[in-house]
Amino acid sequence: MEKIGVILTVAVLILTPVGMIAADRHFASGEPADVTFTLTGVSDGGVWTEEAVVGHNYWRRTPKPARLVARAGQKVRIRLQSADVTHGFSIPDLDVGPILIEPGHVVEAVFTPEEPGEYLFQCTTRCGKCHEEMLGSLVVLGEGETLENYPGGLIKPRTKCLLHGRS
């Protein structure tokens, strides 16, 4: 009987996180695409980021703004989620969005950019005092191009919202 207890306890301790990771992977798979990004909107820091913004790090630091890279003609899938409040997502020059993103829900944008260039994406729902800074870019590389062809980027240095919106 004691052995069963030990086995059950160890199983709980090991299988619980394993099961959660498996479920996470299962639900993360969606429409097939050539390249997939996960973008999280963070209102306090005013960023779209590729970093995982979760319970243990949300309150500690503002994540890096995203600069996504894909190749012209590739099918792009962006999984959009919010770490805090309702956000909107749009890439106006590629006719993507606006898409409403509620916290706790994942919404996907799937599209195929054909023209090389750097495209700005932004939050389209007033989400807080750093809303205007909630920008990012998608670099679409043409034949033979590398990121060096797009120096500097479209996003200006952020001043207002360095740490949770409190400068």
Partner: peptide
């Protein structure tokens, strides 16, 4: 085995909740 049998399912949920708190959404109602 009575107490073990009633605590272990609770331990499983408790453990899963802690993992969700650390790696899940920082939004309370989610």
């Amino acid at each position: 085995w009575f107490q073990f049998a009633v605590v272990v399912p609770n331990l499983l949920f408790f453990y899963a909740f802690l993992i969700a708190g650390v790696f899940g959404s920082p939004v309370g109602n989610r």
